[in-house]
Nucleic acid binder design. Structure first.
Lengths: 295, 295
DNA sequence: TTTTGCCATTGCATTTCCGCACGGAAACCG
DNA sequence: CGGTTTCCGTGCGGAAATGCAATGGCAAAA
């Protein structure tokens, strides 16, 4: 059963009883309506209407079509309303992907967003592999490093995360304050597990700190922070996560070359939807203080 | 939501994931598919798909469309199967209209037909007004008189009903055997109520029998027969209904000019359907003896 | 890294489809 | 009963949709 438009035409004829009326509703010429009906009947091999001078009367087959097409018309109308409305309401799934280690920063914001828009189902994905926006795997991605420049993606600067080297007070009391990067001998470090990490401070560490001095590695930044707090060694922490709780000492202040630049990336097709826009706005509003602090 | 064909195109794209695949299934060119999608998205104001080099991925809106269109496709497939099959099966309503007075002859045949095709719901209509085949009011009509020649109707000869004048034995014993049409004075007649009846014997009676001698009139042929049987007077009865039951005497044998010719009329559009054909065949087969007897 | 293959896209030629206008028939209406 | 309206049916010219072929890009395979 191809050519759904002919069914739609036949539906209007069956509903209204005349070719002329159907043509007016459909916004086409009545000749077109006749041709559609003729073609459809020829294909089906069954007469859908009985023609007489006052109009068309649906046969049993035509009445069957009327019922089915009526339902279809309703379905499509509802679909159209849903689709058109969907762009203007904040509901449904919202998939956010990010690099690991931002949970501490992002999750409270996400929770606030969800509270403000209760119809949204949030999915917060942190995965090794890069989720692909062009396949619709996520609405918003937070990427690090140099600005991504996929053609169909909209990229906005998000935050510049400053990192500094911290140590626990306990560690400093025991081993003394190191002079970085000049005299680091004898000191222990905590670092990222990923040897290929493109995080600026990770690269700096690979180049500057001898590998045997890195006595603890983890892919989880929470674990890294915990390790530093526990006095395992010195390590990079984001300035935003150094303040709360624990007894940390800044061993070396943030350097510009250690900064991680974060980008908000959305696919062009989704970027302009109200849902995504609402999320981006909320995200920016609730990281304002970080941005100010960073500047 | 006009243009259902574009929805169908989008449905195939959403289902298959590629424009090329959809084009192949739909039997059109890739370019056409792309243009359909573009037009549909433009009209809805929402992107249905995210384009990437390996194909199209449905957005939420596209997935919504996929679900709805899937259901529609199923519905239409079933509709098509029903409509195509309907022509080849004997079921559903079958409307037969006829002139009054044939019930005694027809109803047993209709009953037999229904028994043979249990899926058929019969409607047997005898009405004053002529049902109009071109409005689909009936599948089969039985008409009397000269052959109807509506343009879109298929007309076949059905039966030639012979009529003769009968009287009850009781009546003959009392009033003697009349010599028709020469000496009818003093005799009583039973006739049709319809003064404008175009039945040949009715016309003959209007011309030949003085009105005051017609002492009983009815529109119902059963009543007429009952009246003749009861000895009210002489009257025309069909030869087919004179044989069974009662004690009737043929006062005057059938004349050719009294014959009523019956026609089977069907609308062209319905005539070739299996259902109508089956009914016509059954009707002819079970009136074979009448036709033989009549010839 | 190179190659191959699949896929979307776009300008151009063609065909199909559509709108227009006219004709004809039936019903409606004084 | 004749004028009027309201339908449907059809040939023709134009426009829109479609098909075609070339292009370019990306990804998986070699």
């Amino acid at each position: 059963m191809d050519n759904w438009d002919e069914i739609r035409t036949a539906y209007q004829v069956a509903r209204l009883g005349t070719v002329s009326g159907a043509a007016e509703v459909l916004g086409v010429h009545h000749a077109t309506v006749i041709r559609h009906i003729d073609a459809l009947e020829k294909r089906l091999g069954v007469k859908l209407f009985q023609r007489h001078t006052r109009g068309y009367t649906a046969t049993e087959a035509g009445q069957d079509l009327l019922r089915v097409a009526q339902a279809t018309d309703d379905q499509f109308s509802q679909l159209s309303a849903r689709i058109k409305g969907r762009g203007n309401e904040v509901s449904g799934e919202l998939v956010v992907t990010t690099i690991g280690g931002l949970s501490q920063l992002l999750v409270p914001i996400l929770a606030g967003f969800q509270a403000e828009y209760p119809d949204v189902q949030l999915r917060y994905l942190t995965s090794m592999r890069l989720f692909r926006l062009e396949y619709g795997e996520a609405h918003v991605a937070i990427r690090a490093g140099s600005p991504p420049q996929q053609p169909d993606n909209v990229v906005q600067p998000f935050l510049t995360l400053k990192s500094a080297i911290y140590g626990s007070r306990e560690y400093i009391d025991r081993y003394g304050m190191p002079d970085i990067p000049n005299r680091m001998a004898g000191h222990r470090f905590v670092g990222l597990d990923d040897q290929a990490s493109r995080a600026p401070f990770a690269q700096w560490m690979r180049e500057t700190v001898p590998a045997h001095q890195v006595v603890f590695r983890s892919g989880d930044t929470r674990a890294v922070r915990q390790a530093v707090l526990s006095g395992v060694g010195l390590g990079f922490l984001g300035t935003y996560e150094s303040t709360d709780g624990g007894d940390l000492v800044e061993v070396h202040p943030p350097l510009e070359e250690w900064e991680s630049r974060l980008w908000l990336v959305t696919h062009m097709d989704l970027h302009r939807t109200t849902k995504v826009q609402a999320f981006l706005k909320y995200l920016k509003d609730h990281t304002e203080h970080l941005r100010d602090e960073v500047e």
